[in-house]
Design a protein around this nucleic acid. Structure first.
Lengths: 218, 218
DNA sequence: TAGATTGTTAATCGATTAACAATC
DNA sequence: TAGATTGTTAATCGATTAACAATC
């Protein structure tokens, strides 16, 4: 009855990095890679890389290393990029529009954008690359008809919580939040924040406190 | 001759959060706040809050707590938001444009955007809210005339390093990078990454591995 | 003064690194 | 077989939490 310890946030945040580098070396036609070689290109320690990967299974082989394609495909599955996701974007301001056009967030990458929503009368009804922007008031009805996995929240901070409550009600499973606020969500709805303000302030902090700057450990 | 230990990344990443909440409670007209009250609204422990703040000085008072305005203004100085910064944006695609229009990154917030650059012939020469988009080839010359503190890098991954080398040469002090790549910079040029791909993959990981999801600890 | 709450030290917890036996 | 490199345990390091004396 012993339960596995949960995989820590630190490990999870490194997975996309592994995936990115494996893509790069796969593109070079490289077949095998050792933790030591991965260490050199990623800047992480070989020990940490082996430790991380072993949370998910023994993908390597003693004396050989890891098969690049195989490891890449395993990580793909672990991250869940092998699946496809239906998404909507709420708030079609600067950020919302940028995410809509963002290359990493389209059907080719497994994310199908099925709805766009905004509050502004001038934006509602406009067609953006084939999708008509819907009134934010209709999200509710929309979610009853359509099974949406992910909602991008790109509305102002003061309406973000309200929007999320509706999204949760509509059975959205993950929220990619760009509003500068800490949202309250039930624990089975996954939240991932992109807090641009915090990122920018981290930059200015280190510009003013170079002595604390750890180099690129972040 | 004992040197202070550097302030850890974990602490630095929490400072903007303190600043944000202090702004909110200051707006409510609240005068004083205890670490316990801050704990309740931020979700961090009171112990951690006191520990964090004491890296920078004893801003509180026993039996009283912290003066909201004073603490806010101290953190402002620590983060460096009291200063003003000259910035350029390199790459005027979706992300570059969104950042240009982003409310948190304009003169009112202390960031003066003095130049926009792109590689694309159709974009160069266009005027965006008063600034003409310049050819990326001219960054070099531009930086010789103008003292730029921060450069936003929003070009494709495969040209990001090349662009950064020019920025470093031109004495830029901080780089806010949106390209999905780990840049190599001298250690006195501060790098802050916004890796949207990694953020999105963290979201899908937890959607597929709810058992590991720590709630909103990130 | 009595109560409240900080600043700070000590204890705990968790993540990273080192080491090495297992094994391809 | 000999060499290489993993998987995994143990040691170290660092960050968080608990506790409490200092003090407003």
């Amino acid at each position: 009855m012993s339960e596995k310890p949960r995989v820590s946030l630190a490990v999870v945040k490194r997975l996309p990095k592994y995936y990115r580098y494996l893509g790069l070396i796969a593109d070079k036609g490289i077949i095998r890679v050792s933790s030591q070689e991965l260490s050199k290109i990623t800047g992480l320690t070989a020990s940490q890389i082996r430790q991380d990967l072993n949370h998910f299974g023994g993908f390597g082989q003693q004396g050989y290393g890891y098969n690049v394609e195989e490891l890449k495909s395993e990580i793909e599955k672990i991250i869940g990029i092998d699946k496809s996701y239906k998404a909507i974007i709420v708030g079609m301001g600067n950020i919302g529009q940028a995410i809509y056009k963002y290359r990493g967030f389209n059907e080719a990458s497994g994310f199908k954008i099925v709805g766009l929503f905004d509050k502004d009368k001038n934006t509602i009804g406009r067609t953006m690359s084939g999708i008509k922007v819907n009134d934010i008031k209709n999200i509710n009805k929309f979610l009853q008809k359509e099974d949406v996995d992910i909602a991008v929240v790109a509305v102002p901070a003061d309406s973000a919580q309200e929007v999320c409550d509706i999204l949760v009600e509509g059975n959205v499973k993950g929220i990619w939040n760009f509003a500068p606020i800490d949202l309250k969500l039930p624990k089975d709805v996954v939240l991932e924040n992109v807090h641009l303000d915090e990122s920018l302030f981290t930059l200015t902090y280190y510009m003013n406190n170079l002595k604390d700057y750890p180099g690129t450990k972040n």
